[in-house]
């Protein structure tokens, strides 16, 4: 009986999630992503190889990318990285820094020295996340009163009071700087947006929305950047731009293994790092989850009158 009830509950929650996804603005073609995933699975089956790293600890590199140091060997020092991670964990024990990605919608509350005794809350879409260690930062973008606003926050800044994920999702590109040249409705979010809860255990959804760019002039040459999240880039190009795009292409770079190696931290180093911080991060996650559940199930006080 209980099993049936549980499964029916699960179905309900999944159904809700699908419904909400369909109702969501600007998310038109969800099939595309699934196709890509299936294709990858097929490739794996065909080649008969397993994934090289099925270590669950290594998956943390997506959730906590700032724990990995800068791969430039000129700047690396094991002791400094250790101290830095210790400081990051100390800060994380004070504030819940949730899992979020470029394309997620966040609300950040900071204490403002120019508005003493008050707090400052900003809602926006994360268009960039960069830096490692205590220098990690992210940029939120929103359109307020028809005016694009971008705020850069540092993840470990002690004046940040809370970071709340209103909608957890990924987008097709690593950086969403092209939203600056896109139509304003693609990055307009209400300041009183409600957080959307995902059912537990679902993978982070990918929003395959393709934005429409405004006509030129642009801030960057978007046509050269091989963007997947822009739909109408060809409309605004001249023949000259297309020719130059072809000239500027570097198709050999995907075969440059050394370049990839220099940009990443090797898996052996990563396991060392994650084994150092895994336990504490896991504990924090669990305790935060418990707390949030407690908050959820508080009985509402009977209203007087």
């Amino acid at each position: 009986m209980s099993v049936i009830r549980k499964s029916s509950l699960d179905i309900l929650s999944v159904g809700k999630w699908i419904l909400r996804r369909d109702c969501r603005l600007l998310s038109a073609v969800p099939e595309k992503v699934e196709v890509a995933e299936k294709a990858q699975e097929e490739i794996e089956k065909l080649s008969g190889r397993k994934r090289r790293f099925n270590n669950p600890v290594l998956e943390y590199r997506h959730v906590y990318p700032e724990f990995l140091p800068d791969p430039n060997p000129k700047w690396r020092n094991s002791l400094r990285e250790k101290m830095e991670r210790a400081d990051m964990l100390k800060r994380r024990s004070q504030i819940d820094i949730p899992e979020f990605y470029v394309g997620s919608i966040l609300a950040v509350t900071i204490s403002d020295p120019h508005a003493q005794g008050k707090t400052n809350r900003f809602v926006g879409i994360c268009i960039e996340r960069k830096g490692c260690g205590l220098r990690a930062e992210f940029i939120l973008r929103n359109v307020v009163d028809h005016q694009g606003v971008e705020v850069k926050y540092e993840l470990y800044d002690p004046t940040i009071q809370s970071i709340q994920v209103l909608r957890l999702e990924k987008r097709l590109d690593d950086k969403l700087y092209y939203l600056r040249d896109a139509l304003p409705e693609y990055c307009t979010f209400p300041q009183d947006m409600d957080p959307e809860m995902l059912p537990e255990g679902t993978p982070v959804p990918l929003n395959p929305v393709q934005v429409k760019l405004k006509p030129k002039p642009w801030l960057e040459r978007w046509e050269r950047q091989d963007l997947k999240g822009v739909s109408n880039i060809e409309e605004h190009l001249k023949e000259k731009d297309r020719v130059r795009r072809e000239l500027r292409k570097t198709p050999w770079e995907k075969y440059d293994l050394m370049k990839q190696y220099r940009k990443t931290i090797p898996a052996e180093d990563q396991t060392e790092i994650w084994s150092e911080v895994y336990n504490q991060l896991q504990q924090m996650r669990v305790s935060r989850k418990k707390l949030s559940r407690k908050r959820l199930f508080t009985t509402p006080k009977p209203q007087l009158g």
Partner: peptide
């Protein structure tokens, strides 16, 4: 201190 509470500016 990183283990200290979040900074707030009192009026």
């Amino acid at each position: 201190r990183f283990e200290g509470p979040t900074i707030t500016f009192e009026e």
